[in-house]
Design a protein around this nucleic acid. Structure first.
Length: 574
DNA sequence: GCCGTTTTCGGCCCGACTGTTTTCAGTCG
C-alpha cells in the first residue's frame, strides 16, 4: 500500500509551492490530495487499476496523471525537478509552532538558514532580531516552539491526551464558575495523535481561567488572558483552555472540534444555503439562527449531527445531509474486555483484581488472555500452567456467579510457519483464543496470519498489523486478503485499544465494515489501571464508522458464546 | 489544481490573535 508515501509526497510538494509563493489554490489542491489519500481506507493502487481515481473528490486529470506516474515509476518527474530548486532540509522548519512558510522563506533568503540547527545557532547569535518584523517576543516564541518540537516531535499520543484532558475536565467540572465544559480539537475526534489539547468551557470567564492555571499538575503558565489560557502540564504537554459565551458554546465547540477539512466543507454548504458560520454562531444576514448547541447548528442546515469522531470530510457531510449517518457503536455498548493479561504471565494484577475492576466498569464478562509458552520474555504459560490457571478461573467463576463471567482465554503466538503455539487439544479447552504475531516484524506476514485464521479455535487476531504508533511501522501485510479471510472464516479482527497500538487503526476499521468483518475491541491490559483505555479503542472504531453490530464484545454473554462456537461448528470440530 | 442548481471561467471558509506595526502581515485552528 503506497497511500502514505504518496500522501507525504503531495504534502512535500505543497510545502515547496508554499515556499515559492505559488498560487495558494494550487497549494491547497496538493494539500487536499495528500489528506484524501492518507485517510483513504482503500489501496490507492487498486483504485488506480480500476480507473476510479477521478471519482475521488479533489482529484482531477492532472493529479490523476501524477498518481499514476508515481505508482508506475516510484517517482514523479516534475516533482523531482521542483525539489532541486529548494534545499531539502528547509521544511523541517515548518514543524516549529509559530513558524510558517513566509518566515522560512525570509530566514533562508536573508540568513541562509536551512535547518532547525541553523536556526538555533542564529538565535544564539541574536541574528534574528535584525530581521524586519522580528522583536524579542517573536524570537522567544520561536525558541519555545523549537523546545516543544524537540520534546515530542510535535504530536501527543491520543491516550496521553485523553488522560490529561479527562483529569482537567473532571477537576474543573466541580468548580462553581463552570457551566459547561468539553474537550475539543483532535482529542475529541479521537485522532490517534494530537498536536495540543484543546478544552472549551463556558461560565464566569475570569474565575474559570484562574481556576485552570491554578490546577495541580500544571508546570508552567504560558499565556493567561480573559478568554484563553495556555499551560504546560507536568507531562510536558500543552493544554489550551478557551472560555466562550453560553449562547456561542455550541458554535465554538463545533468550530474548535474541526476537523479543518470538515469545517471548510461545512461552510461551503452554509454559503450555498445563504448562511454564514463562525465560532459565534450560524447567521442569516446579521441575524443569529443558532449557536447554543452543535445540534442546533447542524439541524438549521438540514443535517444530522455527525459524531465528532467522523468529522474528517470523508463522506460524513453528505451522509448527514441525506440523514443517513450510521448508528455508531457507543462507548456504553461494550459488555466486556477480551484481551487482558494477568499475573500468570506478564501482567501485574491477579485475575480476581481484574474481575473486580471489570465489575466496577459494568462489564458482564472478561477474557483472561495470558501469553503462550514461546513468548518466554513475557513469561508465557506451559500447557500445565494453562490448565492450572483454568482451575483458578473455575473457582473464581463460582465466586462471581451471577455477577460476571471470566472466560478462559489465551493470547497464542502464531509461530513463524503460521502454526500455533499450542496443539488443538489445549486450545479446545479455552473459551476464547486470540492469536498474535510477536516475531519477525520485517517480513510479510499475510500468509502466517491467514494460516492462523484457518485454525477452528482461533477466535480473533490480536493487533493485526503490529504497528506501534510513532515507534514501529506495521509489518508488510496484504490487509485486504486478511479481511477477506477473516470474513470467510468467522474470525474477528482486534481493535487493540492499548494507547501506543490502536491496531487496527481507524481506516482499517472502516475497511473491515466494508468487508463484513467482525471486530473485537480490547485493551491488552497488563494492569487493572490500563482497562480504561477501552474508550480509545471505541473511539478508533467510531472513527472507522463501526456500528454496534460489527463488534462481538457488544453482545451479551450467550450470544457471544454462540458466535465463538459457530466457527468450531463450521470447521466440524467440537 | 479542482469544480459546477450562478459558472467550462472564475471562483475557491473565516476570524482571532500576536507582534510588530501606525494600518498590517503572518500564523493558527
Amino acid at each position: 500500500m503506497k497511500n502514505k508515501e504518496l500522501a507525504n509526497l503531495f504534502d512535500e510538494w505543497a510545502d515547496i509551492l508554499e515556499f515559492k509563493e505559488d498560487n495558494p489554490y494550487h497549494i491547497r489542491a496538493y494539500r487536499n490530495a495528500a489528506r484524501l489519500i492518507r485517510d483513504l481506507s482503500e489501496d490507492i493502487e487498486i483504485l488506480a487499476r480500476e480507473g476510479k481515481l477521478l471519482e475521488l473528490p479533489g482529484i482531477g486529470q492532472k493529479l490523476q496523471a501524477k498518481i499514476i506516474e508515481f505508482l508506475k515509476t516510484g517517482k514523479i518527474e516534475e516533482f523531482e525537478k521542483l525539489k532541486q530548486q529548494v534545499p531539502d532540509t528547509i521544511f523541517s522548519l515548518l514543524d516549529i509552532p509559530g513558524v510558517g512558510p513566509k518566515t522560512v522563506k525570509l530566514l533562508y533568503e536573508t540568513l541562509g538558514i536551512r535547518s532547525v540547527e541553523d536556526l538555533k545557532r542564529a538565535i544564539e547569535k541574536g541574528e534574528l532580531l535584525k530581521l524586519p518584523g522580528f522583536g524579542l517576543k517573536k524570537v522567544e516564541k520561536i525558541k519555545k516552539g523549537i523546545e516543544l518540537l524537540e520534546k515530542n516531535g510535535g504530536r501527543i499520543l491520543l491516550g496521553v491526551a485523553v488522560f490529561i484532558a479527562d483529569r482537567i475536565i473532571n477537576l474543573l467540572k466541580e468548580h462553581s464558575a463552570v457551566e459547561r465544559i468539553s474537550v475539543a480539537g483532535s482529542t475529541r475526534r479521537m485522532k490517534e495523535t494530537v498536536g495540543d489539547i484543546d478544552i472549551l468551557a463556558t461560565g464566569k470567564n475570569l474565575e474559570i481561567i484562574e481556576a485552570f492555571v491554578n490546577l495541580p499538575n500544571i508546570k508552567e503558565v504560558l499565556w493567561k488572558g480573559t478568554k484563553k489560557a495556555t499551560v504546560i502540564v507536568e507531562e510536558g504537554e500543552q493544554v489550551d483552555l478557551r472560555v466562550t459565551e453560553p449562547e456561542s458554546y455550541g458554535a465554538a465547540l463545533q468550530y474548535f472540534t474541526g476537523s479543518k477539512a470538515h469545517n471548510i466543507h461545512l461552510r461551503t454548504i452554509c454559503l450555498k444555503q445563504g448562511y454564514k458560520l463562525n465560532e459565534y454562531g450560524l447567521f442569516k444576514e446579521e441575524e443569529k439562527i443558532a449557536g447554543k448547541t452543535e445540534e442546533e447548528i447542524y439541524k438549521a442546515l438540514g443535517m444530522e449531527t455527525p459524531p465528532p469522531e467522523i468529522r474528517e470530510d470523508t463522506g460524513e457531510i453528505e451522509a448527514a445531509l441525506e440523514h443517513k449517518l450510521p448508528n455508531l457503536i457507543d462507548y456504553k455498548d461494550i459488555k466486556g474486555d477480551l484481551h487482558i493479561h494477568s499475573n500468570w504471565s506478564d501482567g501485574v494484577s491477579t485475575i480476581e483484581e481484574i474481575a473486580l475492576k471489570a465489575l466496577k466498569m459494568g462489564y458482564k464478562y472478561i477474557a483472561i488472555t495470558d501469553h503462550s509458552k514461546s513468548l518466554k520474555v513475557a513469561n508465557g504459560l506451559s500447557e500445565e500452567d494453562v490448565l492450572r490457571r483454568n482451575e483458578e478461573i473455575d473457582k473464581l467463576n463460582e465466586k462471581f456467579k451471577g455477577k460476571i463471567r471470566i472466560l478462559k482465554g489465551m493470547e497464542v503466538d502464531i509461530l513463524p510457519d503460521g502454526s500455533l503455539d499450542y496443539d488443538n487439544e489445549i486450545l479446545s479447552q479455552l473459551d476464547f483464543v486470540v492469536a498474535a504475531i510477536h516475531s519477525r516484524f520485517t517480513q510479510d506476514n499475510t500468509e502466517r496470519i491467514i494460516k492462523a485464521m484457518e485454525n477452528p479455535y482461533v477466535n480473533a487476531i490480536a493487533h493485526p498489523t503490529g504497528r506501534l504508533i510513532g515507534q514501529r511501522e506495521g509489518y508488510p501485510l496484504d490487509i485486504e486478503a486478511i479481511m477477506k479471510k477473516a470474513a470467510e472464516t468467522g474470525t474477528a479482527l482486534e481493535v487493540n485499544a492499548y494507547y501506543n497500538r490502536l491496531d487496527l487503526k481507524d481506516i482499517h476499521c472502516r475497511l473491515a465494515v466494508k468487508f463484513g468483518v467482525k471486530l473485537v475491541i480490547s485493551t491488552d491490559s497488563h494492569h487493572v489501571d490500563h482497562m480504561w483505555m477501552i474508550k480509545l479503542g471505541v473511539g478508533t472504531a467510531r472513527r472507522g464508522w463501526v456500528r454496534k453490530e460489527d463488534v462481538i464484545n457488544t453482545k451479551n454473554l450467550k450470544d457471544l458464546q454462540k458466535f465463538l462456537k459457530e466457527k468450531r461448528r463450521k470447521f466440524g470440530t467440537k
